[in-house]
Design a protein around this nucleic acid. Structure first.
Lengths: 405, 405
DNA sequence: CTGGCTTTGTGCCGACGCTAAACAAAATAC
DNA sequence: GTATTTTGTTTAGCGTCGGCACAAAGCCAG
C-alpha cells in the first residue's frame, strides 16, 4: 500500500491519459520509459503512475527483479491491473455472436461461447448478446466501465447504422449503435451514456486491436485486409487512429479490380477482389463444392491447411495469392503503409506461401522501397472482440479520472 | 500601439500556435470566434491575440465596422499582418521554375516570372531559384522566416529525395531537400536550419494549400487529383494533415486500372489512369498531334476550352471523364473523402461537364452516400507554390515564439 | 568490502498557462 | 432611456508540470 502520493492531480487534461495508453499498449513497462515517452520529468511520471495506481488501473511491482544487465538502479515495473475494471465487448459475425469482458491491455477476462444462430431482428440479437455480457459481469463481479460492439458490415457515421450486412439477415441501415446503447441501458450496464464510438466494423476494430496489442504494434501506417465469410474487408490505422472515412465507409477494398476478365460482381464491374479472393472463390477454384454445415471461411482454411499438397489446391492458392497481391499492391500505391496485416483466409494464404505473396506485392507496387512493406499474419485471437473493447476503453484512455464517475 | 499586454506568455506549448493557425486559415475573424474554436475563455483568447499582435504576426482592427446585424457588442476583427514576415517559396515544374514570397494567409507578396528552362543539374536549378527568391527579399526588404520547395515528383521520406522526376532531366533519387537547404544556406536565407519538411511533391503541397486557403477549407478528409504535364498525381489531407505515407509515396494514383483493355503503361499493366487520363491521352483521343512548342497541359486545356463544341473533342472529353470517374470512384471506395478537388487537365474536364463526372463517380462508388461526395475545381492560383510556403510556415504555426529567434 | 558511477524514484518550490468571475464597453431591442 | 446581449479586460487564483536537490539501488573498479 503506497499512500505516499503528494502531488494531487485533479481532473482536467493532463498526462494521465497518454500515460495510461502507454501502459495499456505495453509501451511503458517502467516509470523511466514513461518519462521519455511522455516527454515529461521523472517527477511528473512518478506522480502520474501513482495516480493511476490509486485509481486501480495499474499496478506497480516495487520488488527488485532480475534486471536486464544495464547498470544503474533497476526500474520498478508497471502493469495494467489484472483485477481491475473491464469493458463489455460484443461481436456479431457470420457464425454467431459472442460477448466478453476485456481488461486493460486487451486481455480477455471472460468470454461466452459463440452462439451459432443469428436472429433476423437486430434488436433481439443485441439484447441477447448484451444480456450474455451482463451475465458475465454478474458471475465475475467485475466493475464495468464501458462497452463496444463489432459488426460484420460497414457502419455509417455519424449515426452508426449497419450498411449492407450481407452475412446477416439484417436490413441495410439497421441502427445498430442506437439499438446497442438501448440494450445496454436496459441491462443496466453503466458507462455508456455518450453517443460517440461504441460500434464499428469488425475488420476496422480488428485492425485497431492488432495495432495496439498485436502484430501491428509500433506501425505508423497500418493496413489490414481480411476475408471472412464472403467478401473482403480492409482497415487503416494512421498514427494510432482508425481512419474510417468521412462517413465510415473507407477501406471498402472489395471492389478493387484484380482480374479484368474475371467473374461479374454485384457492384456491376468484373473481377473485383470481393469475388476473386474470398473463401467461396478459393473453394470454387480448388474444385470443391462448398457445404452448408460450417462457414465458408472454415471450409476454405481447413482445405488450405490440410490439403495444400494436392496440386489443385496448390494451384487455387497460387491463383488467389496472385489476385490478392495485385489488390494489395494497388493499396500500397495509394496508402504507402509501413506494415500490412492479413486476417481470415488471407492470413492462411500468406502462411501457405509467404514469399509468393510478398513477391507479387513488391513486383506490382511502384518502387522497391514501397514494395518492401512487411506483410504479417494477424496475431490476436478474437481481434475484433478486443477492438470492440478498445471503443469502450477510449473514454478512460482520454481521461482516466472518469473512473471516479 | 496597444501596449496593454498584462499576461506575459512565455515560450512553450500554449494556445499561440493553434490561434495563429486559425487566423492564418481564415477561420478566426474575431476574438470571439477564437474563443469558441480554441475552447478557451475570452481572457485567454484576448491574451493570445495580443501576444500575436505584439509579435507582428497579426493585426487587430479595433474600429467599429458595419456589423452583421446581430446584437451585442461588435467584435474587433483579426487579420494576418499584410506587412509582416514572409517565407520563401519555390516551385519546379515541367515548364520552368518560379520563386515567390508568401505571407501568412497564403497571400503571394511577390513572385518572379516563371523561368522556362530547367537545367539537368538539380543543384544548379535550386541555386538559381533560391537566388531569385533572395533577390525578391532584397527588393522588398521583407523579413524571411522560412522556406519551402515543391517538386513534380514523389519525394521519399525521411531524406527528401526526388524519385522518378519524369518531367525533368533529373536523376531519380536526387537529394533535393539537402540541395535546397544547402542553396538556402549559401544565399544566407535564415530560418531553415531544421532538417524536416521544407520539400514536398507539388500535388501534395497544392492539396495542402487548397485545404488551408482554397476550395478545400473545412473538409475533414480531402482528396486532390491533378494531371500536369504527364501522368496523374494525387494527394490526401486528413484532419488537416497531409498523408504522404510512411515513405512519402502515398497517393500514387496513376496506376489505378481504369480501362482493362487500355494502352500499356510503363508499370507493366494496361489502362492505368496515368496513360488514360493525362493531357497526352486527351490530345491523342481528340485526334490532335501534340506540338512541342508549349506544354501538353496547356495544349490540352486550350483545346478543351476553345473547341469543346467539336464532336471529336467532345467525344474525347467524355471518354476521359469516364476514365477519370472510374479512378475517382475507386479512390472514394478506399478513402471515403468528404470532398474532392481537381487540378490541371482534370479541373478543365470537370468544368467542361460537371454532371457527367459526378454521375460516373456516384454510379461506380458504393452506396450513394459515399458517391455523393462534392467534386470541385481547385481555387488557388499557384497552389503548389502556396503549399510550399506552408512548409516554411509550419514551424511558426507550431510555436509562434520562434519569431523571436 | 569500499568508494565511485550510473540510473531511477521522490519531495519541494516556483513558474507558466489557463480558468473563473467581476467589471467595463459597445452595440441592439423595446 | 433602460434592459439585454455580446465582446473585451482585469484580477485573483489554481492546476500541472519543470527544475533541482537528494535519496535509493544496482553495477564496476580497486
Amino acid at each position: 500500500m503506497t499512500q505516499t502520493r503528494t502531488t494531487r492531480l485533479e481532473r482536467g487534461r493532463s498526462a494521465l491519459g497518454p500515460a495510461l495508453e502507454l501502459v495499456h499498449t505495453g509501451r511503458a513497462p517502467t516509470r523511466a520509459v514513461l518519462t521519455s515517452e511522455l516527454g515529461v520529468t521523472r517527477a511528473t511520471a512518478g506522480a502520474v503512475a501513482a495516480e493511476l495506481e490509486a485509481l486501480g488501473l495499474i499496478t506497480v511491482d516495487s520488488r527488485p527483479h532480475a534486471s536486464a544487465g544495464s547498470q544503474g538502479r533497476p526500474s520498478h515495473r508497471l502493469f495494467v491491473n489484472e483485477d481491475g475494471p473491464v469493458v463489455l465487448a460484443a461481436q456479431i459475425h457470420a457464425d454467431g455472436y459472442r460477448a466478453a469482458l476485456v481488461g486493460l491491455g486487451g486481455r480477455i477476462v471472460a468470454t461466452t461461447p459463440s452462439c451459432g444462430i443469428i436472429p433476423a431482428d437486430p434488436a433481439q440479437v443485441l439484447a441477447e448478446v448484451v444480456e450474455a455480457g451482463a451475465a458475465l459481469l454478474r458471475e465475475t463481479g467485475r466493475r464495468c466501465l464501458g462497452a463496444g460492439l463489432a459488426v460484420p458490415s460497414a457502419v455509417a457515421e455519424p449515426d452508426g447504422e449497419a450498411l449492407n450486412p450481407l452475412h446477416l439477415a439484417w436490413p441495410s441501415g439497421a441502427p445498430v449503435r442506437e439499438l446497442f446503447l438501448r440494450a445496454l441501458a436496459e441491462a443496466g450496464i453503466p458507462g455508456v451514456t455518450e453517443k460517440i464510438g461504441f460500434t464499428g466494423n469488425d475488420v476496422n476494430l480488428g485492425a485497431l486491436a492488432e495495432h495496439r496489442h498485436g502484430a501491428g504494434r509500433g506501425a505508423r501506417h497500418l493496413l489490414c485486409v481480411a476475408s471472412g465469410h464472403r467478401g473482403v474487408g480492409g482497415a487503416l490505422v494512421l498514427d494510432g487512429r482508425l481512419h474510417s472515412g468521412s462517413s465510415g465507409l473507407a477501406l471498402e477494398v472489395g471492389h478493387l479490380t484484380v482480374h479484368p476478365e474475371g467473374a461479374p460482381c454485384h457492384c456491376g464491374s468484373r473481377g473485383c477482389l470481393d469475388v476473386e479472393a474470398d473463401p467461396l472463390a478459393f473453394l470454387v477454384a480448388a474444385g470443391r463444392e462448398p457445404g452448408p454445415e460450417v462457414s465458408l471461411l472454415h471450409q476454405a482454411v481447413e482445405l488450405l491447411r490440410n490439403e495444400y499438397s494436392e496440386p489443385g489446391v496448390r494451384t487455387a492458392a497460387d491463383l488467389l495469392i496472385d489476385r490478392l497481391g495485385l489488390g494489395l499492391a494497388g493499396l500500397v500505391n495509394i496508402l504507402n503503409p509501413d506494415r500490412i496485416i492479413l486476417g481470415g483466409l488471407h492470413r492462411a494464404l500468406l502462411e501457405a506461401d509467404p514469399e509468393r505473396l510478398r513477391a507479387v506485392v513488391a513486383d506490382r507496387s511502384l518502387w522497391g522501397r514501397s514494395g518492401g512493406v512487411p506483410i504479417l499474419p494477424c496475431s490476436l485471437d478474437h481481434n475484433s472482440l478486443v477492438g470492440a473493447a478498445e471503443l469502450g476503453w477510449q473514454p478512460v484512455l482520454n481521461d482516466p479520472l472518469v473512473v471516479l464517475d
